[in-house]
Lab assay of single mutants.
Amino acid sequence: EPLWIRPDAPSRCTWQLGRPASESPHHHTAPAKSPKILPDILKKIGDTPMVRINKIGKKFGLKCELLAKCEFFNAGGSVKDRISLRMIEDAERDGTLKPGDTIIEPTSGNTGIGLALAAAVRGYRCIIVMPEKMSSEKVDVLRALGAEIVRTPTNARFDSPESHVGVAWRLKNEIPNSHILDQYRNASNPLAHYDTTADEILQQCDGKLDMLVASVGTGGTITGIARKLKEKCPGCRIIGVDPEGSILAEPEELNQTEQTTYEVEGIGYDFIPTVLDRTVVDKWFKSNDEEAFTFARMLIAQEGLLCGGSAGSTVAVAVKAAQELQEGQRCVVILPDSVRNYMTKFLSDRWMLQKGFLKEEDLTEKKPWWWHLRVQELGLSAPLTVLPTITCGHTIEILREKGFDQAPVVDEAGVILGMVTLGNMLSSLLAGKVQPSDQVGKVIYKQFKQIRLTDTLGRLSHILEMDHFALVVHEQIQYHSTGKSSQRQMVFGVVTAIDLLNFVAAQERDQK
Rank of each mutant, 00 (worst) to 15 (best):
T456R: 12
H474S: 10
H474K: 04
M352F: 02
G414M: 02
R297E: 02
T482H: 05
G414I: 13
V420E: 13
T274Q: 05
H468K: 12
G418F: 09
V281N: 04
W370Q: 01
L276R: 03
K512F: 10
S287I: 07
R350W: 10
L501D: 01
I300P: 00
F285K: 05
F293D: 01
V275N: 05
R488G: 15
E377K: 12
D270Y: 02
Q323C: 10
Q376D: 09
V264T: 06
D499G: 01
G458K: 09
A431T: 13
T395G: 06
V339W: 04
W369M: 12
I396V: 13
E253L: 08
E412R: 07
E475D: 13
A318Q: 02
A296N: 05
N502M: 11
E324D: 14
L430H: 11
V495L: 15
L500E: 03
P368Y: 13
G304T: 00
V443I: 14
V495F: 15
V281S: 05
D349Y: 05
W371M: 09
M419V: 15
Q323K: 12
D289Q: 01
L460G: 05
V495N: 08
A301Y: 15
F285M: 04
I396M: 13
E397H: 12
G266L: 03
N502D: 15
Q323E: 11
D438K: 11
G393I: 14
T260N: 06
A407L: 14
Q447F: 11
D455T: 13
Q489S: 13
Q302Y: 07
G432E: 11
W351T: 00
I398H: 06
I390C: 11
R374F: 13
F293K: 01
V275Q: 00
M298D: 11
S348A: 10
A407G: 15
K433I: 06
Y342N: 04
Y269H: 08
S313D: 02
T261E: 11
V386M: 13
E401V: 15
S461T: 11
R350L: 12
I238T: 09
V473I: 04
G312W: 01
A497I: 12
N424H: 13
G308M: 00
A413D: 02
W370L: 15
F469D: 07
I238K: 04
I247P: 07
G393C: 14
Q478V: 06
H468R: 13
R350H: 12
N341L: 01
A296R: 01
H480E: 12
R459Q: 14
E258L: 11
D349K: 07
L335K: 01
Q478D: 05
V386F: 10
E250D: 11
L353P: 03
Y445W: 03
I451R: 11
D467N: 13
M352I: 08
K283A: 10
H372Y: 13
V333W: 01
A506N: 10
R509N: 12
T389K: 14
K345R: 06
Q487P: 07
A318K: 02
L380C: 10
A316E: 12
V264A: 04
G268D: 00
Q435L: 14
G328T: 08
H394M: 09
A301T: 04
T261G: 05
D499F: 03
N502A: 13
S338L: 07
R278N: 05
S486V: 09
R452T: 05
S486T: 14
S310L: 00
R297I: 03
W351D: 01
N424V: 15
K367Q: 12
I451C: 03
E303A: 04
V472H: 05
K442V: 14
T395Y: 11
P436T: 12
V491R: 06
V443M: 13
K359Y: 05
S338M: 07
K484V: 15
I267P: 07
F404K: 05
K402H: 13
E360T: 08
N288K: 11
I300G: 01
V264H: 00
E360I: 14
G432S: 05
K402N: 14
G414Y: 08
H468Q: 13
Q435H: 15
Q406D: 02
M298K: 14
T454H: 09
S338W: 06
V319W: 01
K512D: 10
L325K: 05
D282L: 07
T391M: 15
T456E: 11
I247L: 13
G328L: 10
G312P: 01
F469C: 14
D438Q: 11
K442N: 15
V264F: 02
C392V: 15
F448L: 14
L373K: 06
N341R: 01
A296S: 07
L500N: 00
A318I: 01
L306T: 04
K345E: 06
G308Q: 00
L399H: 02
L335A: 05
P336Y: 02
D455S: 14
G432F: 11
Q487H: 13
E360Y: 15
S461Q: 09
I390V: 12
H474W: 04
L471M: 15
T364S: 15
A505P: 05
A292M: 01
K484G: 08
Y262A: 05
L254T: 08
V494E: 05
Y262E: 02
A301C: 10
L380F: 04
D337C: 01
I396F: 09
I247Q: 07
D455P: 09
V319T: 10
A470C: 05
D467A: 15
I247T: 11
T454Y: 12
M343P: 01
P243Q: 01
R400V: 12
D270P: 03
T257R: 09
V440H: 07
W369T: 03
E412S: 12
E252P: 09
S486G: 12
E250A: 08
T456M: 15
K345M: 03
E327T: 14
V317W: 07
L460D: 02
A431N: 12
L325N: 01
L500M: 13
R488Y: 13
E253C: 08
R452C: 14
K283F: 09
Q450E: 14
Q478K: 10
A505V: 14
I247N: 07
R297V: 00
A470V: 15
E258P: 13
L306I: 02
W284A: 00
P383S: 15
P273G: 00
E365T: 14
F293Y: 02
A318P: 02
R374T: 13
S427M: 04
N255P: 05
L422R: 13
D499P: 00
G441I: 12
I416C: 14
E263K: 13
C307K: 06
R452D: 10
A506F: 15
N341F: 00
Q323R: 15
E465C: 12
T454K: 11
M343E: 04
K433T: 12
A470E: 04
K345N: 02
E324T: 10
L325M: 09
E303V: 02
G240H: 00
L325F: 13
V494Q: 04
L254Y: 05
T389Y: 12
H372I: 12
R374A: 12
V280H: 06
Y262N: 00
G458H: 08
G309H: 00
I238M: 07
F448M: 06
L363P: 15
L426V: 12
L387V: 09
F492T: 11
E327V: 07
K355P: 02
D510I: 03
V315A: 11
T279F: 10
E250F: 04
D289G: 00
S427N: 09
M352H: 01
V375P: 06
L347I: 10
A296M: 04
P243R: 01
T454P: 12
L335V: 12
H394I: 12
E303H: 07
G483T: 15
T389I: 14
R459V: 07
V280R: 11
L347G: 00
A296L: 02
D270T: 05
A413I: 11
A301G: 15
F346D: 05
S427D: 09
P251E: 05
L471Y: 14
Q489H: 15
V280T: 14
S428Y: 13
I498M: 14
Q376P: 09
T364D: 06
Q354F: 08
V472R: 04
V494W: 02
T389G: 10
H468G: 04
F448C: 15
E365N: 05
V339H: 05
W369S: 04
A470W: 03
F293I: 03
T344N: 04
I416Q: 04
L430Q: 05
D337I: 02
L430R: 15
G312Q: 01
A407W: 05
I238R: 00
F295H: 03
E465Y: 09
R340K: 08
T364K: 12
Q511L: 11
V319G: 06
F448K: 07
A431D: 15
I498Y: 11
T260G: 11
F448Y: 15
N341G: 04
G356P: 04
L335C: 09
R488F: 14
K367H: 05
T344A: 10
A431P: 12
G418A: 11
D242E: 06
Q302W: 14
Q447A: 14
V375K: 08
A321L: 12
K359F: 08
I396Q: 09
D282M: 03
E291L: 11
P273E: 03
F404N: 02
T314A: 11
F295Q: 12
G245P: 01
G403P: 09
I444T: 11
R400W: 10
V415M: 09
S313E: 07
